[in-house]
Design a protein around this nucleic acid. Structure first.
Length: 440
RNA sequence: GUGGUUGUAGCUCAGCUGGUCAGAGCACCGGAUUGUGGUUCCGGGGGUCGCCGGUUCAAAUCCGGUCAGCCACCCCA
């Protein structure tokens, strides 16, 4: 028989319920922060993604040539579409633009736990706000997105870092722009690979002095407070303009941290300059959410990308944003027992005796459904005893009994399936009776 | 893309060194039960043991390949 494609998931009702739960919480969080929902097409021009990420990305896309000869690809992320949409209306959009999107994305790569070929992401972005006020909102939303599921500071934290600060430092070391980018990508991997390998990669930039630099980089990565960062950076930077830049940058840090502190979110934040994110297009603050137990891959990632919209769509527009994937969050919530048990329960179950009673029953079934109740009944005629079993297992609170006696008396017997009490209700009063029961 | 590891019913698994080894529990369906319940009892459907090939008198079991899952690497938008 046919099998599921590797890296894709089936969503049976139980899984669909979980997915809906995630989406519902994300939407609710984003709305509270004043974000508006957008979406773009699943399929975009291959060139859009190539323009954003370079040629290497093509290897990791589901792409093909369509019947019109266009090179197209399933979106591997939402940001390029966002840039296209926002860029096209950049002049007329009221700033700041606060948008969020929830969408399925596709990446052609070998799957692993928490990493699939198709997944969903919640993305939130603020466009047109160059200062740390945007990061405050975004990080607050990111944290709220997790706490609204019941996760707390014991479960996850947000690591905060800054590529600008690194650039000031590396420039002070005499590196040019290209070398800085190279060293940043080495720093990104530092914690995850053996020292020898790191040293090897630093060789082209620092030559004989590479071990010394690796030590310095390691100490910078370990700094946990603004004061320590300032002291270290100023001690290792002599150029006046760079020193001035560092001071200004630290002022932005203070704004960001005091804003988050004032919102009561300080306990979720960790300063960690080891986070630089592999991507070259990030330009300032970058951050990552991770589980405190350190067992899963990153829960979310984001940062500032001030030049991307200009690159993809023309207009200059400051931008920052983050994305939360569904797979890792799902695992975390499951392990913390924070996924609610979804019960597909009926409100009412009609127990119907024979064809004669069906007519009266169906009339009520339809009316009650119109009134908003979830009403079920056995599709095939079954013995009363059997129907009561089904009524019980349906989770319904009330059974509506349509037997020959009730039909003859123009009543419906309403049985409370929890306390087993029964009441004969005149057919004309049924809707009112039911409404009253469920409102009380 | 590379390497390691796993693969028996929808799910969780049992099946020792090749010889009633195709099984259990749960789930599902039916009956006991034609006016009252999720319990209980009885019964039933469902698997070419991932797939293909090889060794053997005989393969779920051994060997090779392949596919898929998991882990690590690569990459991580």
């Amino acid at each position: 028989m046919f099998e599921r494609l590797p890296g894709f998931r089936d969503f049976y009702p139980e899984e669909c319920a979980v997915r809906n739960h995630l989406f519902r919480a994300w939407r609710s969080a984003a709305r509270r922060f004043g974000f508006s929902e957008y979406d773009g097409p699943l399929l975009e021009s291959l060139e859009l993604f190539r323009a954003k990420s370079g040629d290497e990305i093509v290897e990791q896309l589901f792409s093909f040539t369509d019947r019109g000869g266009r090179e197209v690809a399933l979106r591997p992320e939402l940001t390029p579409s966002l840039a296209r949409l926002a860029g096209a209306r950049a002049q007329s959009l009221k700033k700041p633009v606060k948008w969020f999107g929830i969408g399925e994305q596709f990446r052609y790569e070998r799957q692993q736990r928490g990493r699939l070929r198709s997944f969903y992401q919640f993305n939130a972005d603020i466009l047109g706000e160059p200062g740390p006020a945007a990061e405050i909102e975004l990080i607050a939303l990111l944290i709220h997105s997790f706490t609204s599921f019941g996760l707390g500071a014991a479960d996850f934290a947000v690591r905060l870092s800054d590529r600008d600060l690194w650039l000031f430092y590396l420039r002070g070391m005499g590196l040019d722009e290209e070398a800085c980018a190279g060293v940043l990508s080495v720093i990104d991997k530092m914690g995850r690979e053996p020292e020898e390998k790191t040293l090897e990669k630093l060789e082209p930039y620092f030559g004989e002095a590479r071990a010394d630099f690796m030590g310095k980089i390691a100490s910078l990565r370990d700094l946990k407070s603004l004061e320590d960062m300032r002291e270290f950076l100023l001690a290792h930077t002599t150029d006046g303009a760079l020193r001035e830049g560092i001071e200004q940058r630290l002022a932005q840090w203070r704004t960001l941290l005091s804003g988050l502190e004032a919102m009561g979110l300080g306990e979720f934040i960790r300063i960690d300059l080891g986070i630089v994110r592999g991507l070259a297009y990030y330009t300032g603050f970058v951050f990552e959410a991770f589980d405190r137990a350190g067992e899963l891959r990153a829960l979310a990632g984001g940062g500032r990308y001030d030049h991307l919209i200009e690159k993809l769509a023309g207009p200059e527009m400051a931008a920052a944003g983050f994305g939360i994937g569904d797979a890792t969050l799902w695992e975390l919530l499951e392990s913390k027992k924070l996924l609610p048990r979804y019960v597909e329960a009926a409100d009412l179950y009609a127990v119907i005796e024979g064809e004669a009673a069906r007519e009266a029953a169906f009339r009520d079934v339809r009316a009650l459904r119109e009134a908003g109740f979830r009403v079920e009944y056995s599709l095939k005629p079954l013995a009363f005893g059997k129907q009561f079993k089904l009524a019980a297992s349906s989770g319904a609170r009330l059974a509506l009994i349509y037997g020959s006696e009730e039909i003859a008396n123009a009543t419906v017997k309403v049985r409370n399936l929890q306390d087993r009490s029964e009441e004969a209700v005149p057919a004309g009063r049924l809707a009112a009776f039911i409404r009253e029961f469920f409102s009380g």
